[in-house]
Amino acid sequence: MSEGVEWALHCCLNLTWVESGEAVTAAKLAGFYQLPTAYLNRQLQALVRAGIVTSTSGPRGGFRLARDPRHITLLDVVTAIEGGQEAFRCQEILRKGPGGRDDVDYRKHCLVSQAMRRADLAWRRELAAQTLADIKLAVEDKRPGTPELTRNRLA
């Protein structure tokens, strides 16, 4: 996974604490973690295309969450940044090995491929089961001052 996933997740989490109706510029979000604004903006645009955040231009423009944090899963964010392809891509090397056959789809019959697919599905299920709201509540429980500190820093 690229660092853009981490950046996008933290930015989305920070947007959960922004006052309703307020937008935050890419520069402010980037400055929060000392990230390069241009690269972060690309991640934010991917989130816009996925319908996770909205973007408005102008003096009061910036980014805000497009949906309630309860309806944004970690998998939504990962998929927006990385795409939906599986982490493991079977190249069917068994076809070229001893006893390999051209009439067999090794992506379906290879035990290594099957194990990797199961792991990928488990990973995706875990990410799909966690929302931004879940992470937000966990952070607030562990560090109650975070929402106010975040709002003040992004203001």
Rank of each mutant, 00 (worst) to 15 (best):
S2N: 11
G4A: 02
V5L: 06
E6W: 06
A8F: 03
L9F: 00
H10C: 05
H10D: 14
C11D: 14
C12T: 08
L13C: 01
N14C: 14
L15S: 14
V18A: 14
A23Y: 15
T25I: 06
T25S: 13
A26T: 08
K28W: 03
A30E: 12
Q34N: 12
P36T: 14
P36S: 08
A38M: 10
Y39I: 08
R42P: 00
R42H: 10
Q43D: 12
Q43H: 00
Q43G: 08
Q43C: 09
L44E: 13
Q45F: 00
A46C: 04
R49P: 01
G51M: 01
G51R: 00
S55E: 15
T56W: 03
S57P: 12
G58T: 10
P59H: 00
R60P: 02
F63N: 10
F63R: 03
F63W: 12
R64K: 13
L65R: 11
L65Q: 07
A66Q: 12
A66T: 12
R67C: 06
D68W: 02
D68N: 15
P69Q: 07
R70N: 13
R70S: 06
R70V: 02
H71S: 15
I72N: 11
T73H: 09
L74G: 12
L74N: 09
L75A: 15
L75S: 13
V78P: 01
V78I: 08
T79R: 12
T79P: 05
A80Y: 06
I81G: 07
G84F: 04
Q85R: 07
A87K: 11
A87D: 14
F88C: 04
I93T: 13
I93K: 12
K96M: 09
G97D: 10
P98V: 12
G99C: 02
G99R: 12
G100N: 08
R101T: 04
D103P: 06
D103E: 13
D105Y: 09
D105L: 01
Y106H: 02
Y106F: 03
Y106I: 00
R107L: 02
R107D: 13
R107A: 03
K108R: 04
H109W: 00
H109P: 00
C110S: 03
C110W: 02
V112K: 01
S113K: 03
Q114G: 05
M116P: 00
R117N: 12
D120T: 10
L121E: 15
L121S: 10
A122Q: 15
R124P: 06
R124H: 09
E126Q: 10
L127A: 06
L127G: 08
D134C: 06
I135P: 04
I135K: 01
L137Q: 14
A138W: 04
V139W: 04
V139F: 01
E140G: 05
D141S: 07
K142F: 03
R143C: 09
R143M: 03
P144M: 01
G145E: 15
T146Y: 07
T146A: 06
P147I: 07
E148D: 13
N152V: 00
R153P: 01
L154E: 15
L154R: 05
A155D: 13
